[in-house]
Amino acid sequence: MSKEEKKGFLHYLYKHRFLMGRRLTQVSIMLLYIGGNIYGWNILKGNLSSSKLFDVIPLADPFAVLQMFFAGAIVAVDALIGAGIILLFYALIGGRAFCSWVCPMNMITDFANWLRVKTNIHREEWQLRITRKTRYLAIAMALTLSLILGMPAFEFVSPISILHRGLIFGMGLGWTMVLAIFLFDLFVIKNGWCGHVCPLGGFYSLVSKPSLIRVDYDYGKCTECMECVKICPESQVLHMVGKHSSLVSSGECINCGRCVEVCNDDAIYFSLRFLEKSKEAVSHEGK
């Protein structure tokens, strides 16, 4: 601790570089949307469900379009292209970065999580246990309900949409939903919404497995302090820590970079899939 204090503010910034980058990205995206609505800025218009980038490039939420497909609607080509662009970006490049770098709900749930740990509310034995696979059940339910009702079912209840739409177009009573998610994450389950229930996060978990940007773990450098696992909101994806070197290949990794920041041994870092350095490093044999 004293070592860190000596290193001072710059070191603090360095130790939170991805966190601050994420907050900056999340806030900027929302501000661009809000400016697009209020002042007519032509950078990002619409909202996270569907938008226009620079007034030309369509973007759309692929999960919303998928639900519409199940509801029996073939949407116009703009939305299809938009959904394709977003899908390919996260699937081939960004991984599940939507959840940690774009989604505004992430700020709410991260705050709940931070408060939970700071105030010692968090005890493993106190929290309600549900499986992290609940989100896949939620996807199945969303698609089934879309089929039965002929409506994109999740789009009418999504707290994410309620939040980002609310920030841009007026919140109404939407804050109650946001508060509900906050309290759920604070008191009921750690990372409850984003890490267990959210079907949109689940959708990106499923599709972003092949992505280029991946976290890489080097067992050779690891001192097994487990700080990365402790801070990871999807800690199951770091199952290899302390065992063997490997890429974090699970689609459930949100590429938030918290593990990279907390590691004092340079044992865990962002990498590209084909640059998997850890392969050459020590594997099962140990150090």
């Binding site: 218009k45 619409g46 909202n47 569907s50 938008s51 759309a60 919303a64 519409m68 609607a73």
Partner: peptide, 16 residues
Amino acid sequence: LKKCIKCGLCVEACAN
């Protein structure tokens, strides 16, 4: 309701 993606682009076009 099936096709509306709730993006608000129409609202923005109207407002601006």
